[in-house]
Write a protein that binds this DNA or RNA. Structure first.
Lengths: 216, 216
DNA sequence: TAGATTGTTAATCGATTAACAATC
DNA sequence: TAGATTGTTAATCGATTAACAATC
């Protein structure tokens, strides 16, 4: 596997998917080279940040031309593991859980939802696309037998930690937490959070108090 | 309207919805007081951060007891505008757009989706819950006539900036960007991003390269 | 009172930006 | 060559943590 020049700091990791998306679309336009300042403009960053970020990778640009799109894309694919398919389970078959399980963009990006679980027995057996909602008691078995690497927590805050514990015990190595609750996991299980309502609430504050953007 | 002691820094704004959620659940348990270190434990922060954060508000704790839950909740409600109802439009009636429009949690949190738009005329008139999918040409009219304050962008990256421009022209003051594309808006229009696939890709990297958490 | 916890100041840490020699 | 753009070092900025006097 790819060895990195150094551990990529969290601030940079957060930008990687955006670089990747941008590079994909430049590649689709058959553009071959991009400079740090062009990328910066596209992503709302400074060229300094872009060059600083790329210095983490084992990949170099060329003076006067910038970065080769194809090479950059290959590097990002490796760093993000975008060339592999992850098996994923969704816990929580509410509105959010159902969407996630159906989300065709996931498949396109290499995230394959293999099962949906819910604690509510009323929901067991009901269909979410191709999948049937399963009871929580099947979780460990499915994760192990199918080699599931990630779990998505789409349950109410009150249940989130219990679900996280189940996922960890079952053996997943990554958790996407969509609940409001902070969850605690062992050091070898990574967690990222994505909270849509929280984003709307932030926005609400910013609108009310006109939190400006930094002036240029 | 509430006046703040000072502008709340972005790092703090990001935590406000989590404080709020936590305080709501403590309140539901009829707990009356909470200390900075208890809150820190619940949210995975340090007590220093909690106290530093709260120093932005016009709200004080009491030595030896901590912070009064009801008072804290009131303060956060005002800061987040959680006591008001925002009218919101969703642009993009794909998988993600439909979910968002149906998401019952939004209503509970004061975000009322009043219309869904899509550029694809095949989708016009089809139902998303109670709502019919409308053509983009109706956007300005609906935003103005209904007093819509926020828009949610749930379209592919390539269309995101155009949609943002439409929303801005129509008069929304906040945009939740769920697309991968960076969008540019005038200074008086706030933007927050929430990208689920990006979160999964971050997670993917962290799992592959075992990005540890900071050791305690 | 004695002890716990706040509010705030100062120190540390990490992220971003600026600057510029190296280089194509 | 001349000029543009990288890669990297140093400076700045902002966020987090530590420390402690004030206080209930």
């Amino acid at each position: 596997m790819l060895s990195l020049k150094k551990v990529i700091p969290p601030s940079v990791v957060k930008r990687l998917p955006r670089y990747f998306s941008c590079v994909q679309s430049l590649n689709a336009k058959e553009i071959e080279w991009v400079s740090s300042s062009e990328l910066a403009d596209l992503l709302g960053l400074t060229s300094s940040t872009v060059r600083q970020d790329f210095s983490c990778f084992d990949f170099s640009g060329i003076s006067k031309r910038g970065y080769n799109i194809v090479g950059l894309q290959k590097m990002l694919v490796e760093i993000l593991g975008a060339d592999m398919t992850w098996k994923v389970v969704v816990v929580g078959a509410g509105n959010m859980g159902r969407v996630l399980a159906l989300h065709e963009e996931f498949v396109r990006c290499g995230f394959d939802v293999v099962a949906v679980f819910d604690a509510d027995s009323e929901k067991h057996g009901t269909k979410v696309g191709e999948l049937k909602v399963l009871p929580m008691s099947d979780l460990a078995m499915i994760v192990e037998s199918q080699g599931v690497g990630m779990g998505i927590i789409a349950v109410p805050a009150a249940a989130a930690q219990d679900v996280a514990d189940l996922l960890v015990d079952a053996g997943v190595k990554g958790i996407l937490n969509m609940s409001m609750r902070n969850i605690i996991t062992p050091n070898d299980v990574s967690v990222t959070a994505s909270r849509i309502v929280a984003s709307l609430q932030q926005l609400s504050h910013c609108v009310l108090f006109s939190c400006g953007k930094k002036k240029k």
